[in-house]
């Protein structure tokens, strides 16, 4: 498996997404800090084994903090593969094999994938091109054969679509997708039970750590479930600036799924003044408008990662509680049928 060289400068920090209606100030924030990250490339050099090899480094505080500040965009393709330890699962020829073996197969997953191909990033010009659609089809179909238990879940099209923008080689994008899903709880599985559980856990932490935001939601009978579902499924891959998504992915691939909780808490904390300024508007609509141009990534991370008492043990306790609620809900639904 070879990783093609990163695209030549000038690097498009918007990854082809339309951004003409962003304010000058926002455009500048992104280009300034991406240029700043590029200048920091030298900090990353010691971690590389060769130009195309990045073995996952030990989790020192120094390295964690380096990743939280952002991986220089040009280094991402190689660093992500290293952080996700793609090498440990990579089997030469397997990706191509899925495609050849199943060339004329049909399945529910393939049917669902087909329906979503033209519904993936319709605002992005590249996704109007047959070549991109074919890449998306190949990667998602191969994944559905690789993990038939999961098959295909709407939202994987967004994750795979974002990967296409970073990897010019389909096989790279495929194996990175495999490892991303391995990193997560079974959010995308056929029952989506892990997602339901974690959204309830998220609601608990939101109430505990950002009570003002939670209260603003409650006023309209909304919970974290309404706000965070798409975030957890697409990994903040849609309805945020691409660079925001990728900064989250940098940390997610290094530190794991807890990142989703922390970033969610950070965004909600940051959004409080905006929500307060529009007291009669629906918080869901306000949040969408707030996130679309959200480029103040560092301050979101600062707010999210400063939250204390966020141990894996504590989360597991919350998951146990949430599991009981989900089981009750399922029993209730079954009883009615």
């Amino acid at each position: 498996m070879t990783t093609s060289p990163a695209p030549q400068a000038p690097f498009d920090y918007w990854y082809g997404f339309p951004h003409a209606n962003y304010t000058e100030e926002r455009l500048k924030i992104v280009s300034d800090y991406c240029n700043h990250l590029q200048e920091k490339e030298s900090h990353w050099k010691p971690y590389f084994k060769s130009d195309s090899e990045f073995p996952k480094p030990a989790q020192t505080n120094r390295f964690k903090s380096l990743v939280r500040k952002g991986i220089p965009p040009k280094l991402r393709p190689i660093v992500w593969k290293g952080l996700l330890d793609v090498q440990s699962v990579y089997k030469p020829g397997l990706y191509q094999n899925y495609l050849t073996t199943h060339e004329s197969s049909t399945s529910t997953a393939l049917h669902d994938i087909e329906a979503d191909l033209n519904r993936t990033f319709p605002e992005h010009p590249l996704f109007h091109e047959d070549e991109t659609i074919n890449r998306l089809r190949r990667i998602l179909s191969a994944y559905s054969w690789h993990n038939p238990e999961l098959g295909y879940c709407q939202s994987l099209n967004c994750i795979a679509g974002m990967l296409i923008l970073v990897y010019s080689d389909d096989e790279d994008a495929f194996w990175v997708l495999v490892q991303i899903i391995n990193l997560l709880p079974n959010y995308h599985g056929k029952t989506m039970r892990d997602l339901r559980i974690d959204l309830k856990v998220m609601d608990h932490y939101l109430r505990k750590h950002v009570p003002d935001f939670h209260a603003l939601l409650s006023k309209f009978s909304f919970t974290a479930e309404h706000i965070c579902m798409e975030w957890f499924l697409t990994l903040f891959g849609r309805d945020f600036p691409a660079e925001f998504s990728f900064r989250v992915w940098d940390v997610l691939f290094n530190e794991g799924w807890k990142t989703l909780f922390r970033v969610s808490l950070g965004i909600c904390t940051k959004a409080i003044p905006t929500l307060r300024s529009q007291p009669s508007a629906s918080p869901i609509a306000v949040m969408r408008q707030f996130c679309l141009p959200l480029v103040e990534i560092d301050s979101v991370f600062d707010l999210g990662f400063q939250v204390r008492s966020f141990s894996r043990k504590g989360i597991n306790q919350q998951r146990e509680n949430a599991t009981k609620i989900v089981e009750q809900e399922d029993a209730e639904t079954a009883r009615r049928r």
Partner: peptide
């Protein structure tokens, strides 16, 4: 013809 896939649910007021 081609709107983005609705993931979870999309809210409109």
């Amino acid at each position: 013809e081609n709107l983005g896939t609705s993931i979870g649910a999309v809210f409109f007021a």
